[in-house]
Design a binder for these strands. Sequence first.
DNA 1: CCACTTTGTAAGCGGTTGCTTACAAGCTAG
DNA 2: CTAGCTTGTAAGCAACCGCTTACAAAGTGG
Lengths: 185, 185
Amino acid sequence: MTSEPPVRKRDATATKALILDAAAVLFAERGFDRTTVRDIAARAGANQALLFRYFGSKEALFEEVVARGGREQLESTPAAALPAAMIRRLLTGDGQSIAVFLRAAHSDRAAAEVRARLGDDYTRVLATLTDAPDAELRAELVLAWVLGLGLVREVAGAEPLRGADPDEVVRLLAPAVRTLLERAE
Amino acid sequence: MTSEPPVRKRDATATKALILDAAAVLFAERGFDRTTVRDIAARAGANQALLFRYFGSKEALFEEVVARGGREQLESTPAAALPAAMIRRLLTGDGQSIAVFLRAAHSDRAAAEVRARLGDDYTRVLATLTDAPDAELRAELVLAWVLGLGLVREVAGAEPLRGADPDEVVRLLAPAVRTLLERAE
DNA sequence: CCACTTTGTAAGCGGTTGCTTACAAGCTAG
DNA sequence: CTAGCTTGTAAGCAACCGCTTACAAAGTGG
């Protein structure tokens, strides 16, 4: 019997993008280990064999997701506004990039390298906010705070933070961050 | 006390403890998903079937590890000294409890509950450090910072923090934490 | 001593995983 | 048209996973 054909257009770059997007969402939602290539392919509406043809491996796909997501914000935000922007992005939850970064905890060495390099980039930008001799250490402490925020919110889902107004959080954190960065000793 | 039999070859409680210890180390090191029950049993020098006899499931074992590890420090440290103690424990790396807590990110709902409850306990204790009306939110921000510290150190392994002196880190963080907690508005 | 329970072991089952292979179908050049 | 490349698909492989089962050995009470 002649059933209706799914009539799919053949577009490699579009399929690639679909897979990449699906992977970004799922990696952010469940982390690397709990996301299967079958899930990604299903969400992208693509055959899973294509995932391997276009990206080589699950690891490589993950690396592309991490690398792509992180740098957008970094390149489009001035240093002084970066902490607040990171926090807002984290709390409003509409950005997956930091979530993916968080979720990268358990992944392989190759992905860990991408992640570390991205973290270094953030640290370097944040370090321009202070003229203390240990600027990088202080910057890293700021980065740690932001990531910890995401961790507590996403992982623990603790009540006060989950329902808190992002502006309120920024208002509380700002003076403390300033103290950390300005305090010369 | 001479009434104890000196050496027991077959000792259920000892085996249980061995499994629990091995699990704590491995969960802290690799996280839940990347730790296999075979690895745990091998490290404990026990047969993996015993793991299921004594703990029921991998999830249940994980819950016991998380629950056991977290409360020790919480019960033995006065509130005022808790932030510094947490940071030191995190940075010196000899305590696995917080690492396990960190690693608990991707685990199941049952474990997530244990984790959330433990996080609430920490938050509650930290909240006693300030008399601001939004004490719990501020406390949670402190907790977030400490956990983020662990995340950056363990996950990103970034250079300044990895080699940093714990005392130095505490010295940098202390004023900022004080600012966060004391700032009334 | 024997019957019974507890502790430890060996083997494997069913399911899932990342990844591969063999092949069909669409597109374009000649 | 058709040859040859690209894009998509169906099926399955080998390895590993959490977990179970069947059974042997050690300890204990009567």
